[in-house]
Computed example of a mutant assay.
Amino acid sequence: MSKARRSVTPEDRYSIVQEAIRDGHAEISRKYNLSPSLLRKWRLKYLSKGKEGLKDSYSRVDPQLRALEEENERLKRIVAKQALELEIKSELLKKTPIHARRS
């Protein structure tokens, strides 16, 4: 049985923590199917930093921005490859004599 990853917003976390403080941790853990340690961690974050402590600690990257960054990297690689090819061709032309021997 696979566990699906849940997404809980900071507002939901706040309301769950408030409910747990009011009604008790064990009951709320069962109600929302959360582990008691996770609920305890949220409560400690709330008590130390307030409502701001319940926000995600990592910044979410916009999928459109990520796609643009990947395309940018791909284009940079293409330009670098073309520049290398041009440099090699120019070096080869410098080494090749202009007048070919005719026999």
Rank of each mutant, 00 (worst) to 15 (best):
E91A: 15
A80I: 05
A80L: 13
L93E: 14
L86T: 05
W42H: 09
R102Y: 07
N33K: 13
R102P: 00
N33G: 04
K3H: 02
E70V: 00
L34I: 15
G50M: 10
R66T: 06
K89M: 15
L75Q: 13
S15K: 15
A83F: 06
V61G: 05
R101Y: 10
Q82N: 13
I98A: 03
Q82T: 11
P63G: 05
D23T: 10
Q64V: 11
L86Y: 02
K95M: 14
P10R: 00
S48Q: 03
D12W: 09
E19I: 01
T96Y: 05
R6T: 05
S2G: 04
L86F: 00
S2R: 08
L44T: 11
V17H: 02
A67K: 15
R5Q: 10
L68E: 14
I28Y: 02
I21H: 06
L54S: 02
R13K: 13
A4F: 08
V17N: 01
S7T: 14
K89Q: 15
R5C: 02
G53E: 07
E71D: 11
L65C: 03
P10Y: 06
L38H: 00
S48N: 14
M1Y: 02
A4Y: 07
S103P: 02
Y58F: 11
K95N: 11
K95P: 03
K55L: 08
S103F: 05
I78W: 07
L39P: 00
L84F: 14
E27M: 11
L68H: 08
L75K: 08
I28K: 09
V61S: 13
R66Y: 05
E69A: 13
K41M: 07
K76E: 07
G50L: 00
Y46I: 07
G24N: 09
S90N: 15
L75W: 09
R40Y: 10
E52W: 03
T9G: 06
L65M: 07
P36V: 08
K49F: 04
S35A: 11
K81M: 12
I28N: 07
V8H: 06
E19W: 03
R43I: 00
K89R: 15
L34C: 01
S2H: 03
